[in-house]
């Protein structure tokens, strides 16, 4: 990608379509998080109590999983640009593993919450918790699948893989990071 195209308003890294999706997702999740903060302001004691029942340690490890995945995904793009395809594929594999680690640990957390009776019906905090983290979980799942197909394309169809496709797929992955970087403090730390 030349400098001219990168600096053009119509060509952000990954292409304009993925960035429109990213901003729409950020706005949607952002509005839901603002609503959570608003209700939390009205029922501060209740939200504080419910938030203390969450496992901060698991959420912190999950944050590390996601930023580690983001790091490897960004490395994969750099390696692909440097025509180091094998390393790029390896980096994508590590990013996928970090994503799978997040998904499994989150399922473990969900299991614990359900065992403790902290389902959606428990309180308005937990309704928000399940909806926000559940939709985010689905995004991470889709992100892992996208990384899988990107990796497959650069390993098996090298001549067809383009930097724009890889940047777009990786940008989706980073979007999952971005959403979690806001969900983590609002759900686990700030009440």
């Amino acid at each position: 990608m030349t400098n001219t195209t990168t600096k053009s308003i119509a060509y952000p890294p990954g292409g304009i379509l993925i960035w429109i999706i990213i901003y729409l997702e950020l706005i949607t999740f952002g509005m839901a998080m603002v609503a959570l903060a608003y209700y939390g302001m009205q029922e501060r004691a209740l939200f504080h109590h419910d938030s203390q029942l969450l496992n901060k340690e698991i959420a912190t490890i999950n944050t590390i999983f996601l930023i580690t995945g983001g790091f490897f995904a960004a490395k994969a793009v750099h390696c692909f640009k440097a025509k180091n395809i094998d390393r790029s594929a390896r980096m994508l594999l590590w990013a996928m593993l970090a994503g799978v680690g997040f998904l499994l640990l989150k399922m473990f957390e969900y299991y614990g919450k359900l065992e403790a009776g902290l389902s959606m019906d428990y309180s308005s905090f937990y309704m928000n918790y399940w909806l926000l983290t559940g939709f985010h979980w689905i995004h991470v799942f889709v992100g892992v699948i996208i990384l899988f197909f990107i990796r497959r394309s650069i390993v098996h169809k090298k001549e067809l893989a383009t930097i724009e496709d890889i940047e777009a797929g990786v940008a989706f992955w980073h979007m999952c990071d971005l959403i979690w970087l806001l969900l983590f403090p609002i759900l686990y730390l700030l009440f």
Binding site: N3, P13, G70, A74, L181
Partner: peptide, 24 residues
């Protein structure tokens, strides 16, 4: 502090990992 550090993390991922630094 938590909010400011979270926003800094958000910006770092956007500008460094997603390469917004080279965007319009």
């Amino acid at each position: 502090t938590i909010v400011v550090v979270s926003v800094i993390k958000f910006l770092l991922v956007g500008f460094q990992f997603m390469e917004l630094k080279i965007a319009h």
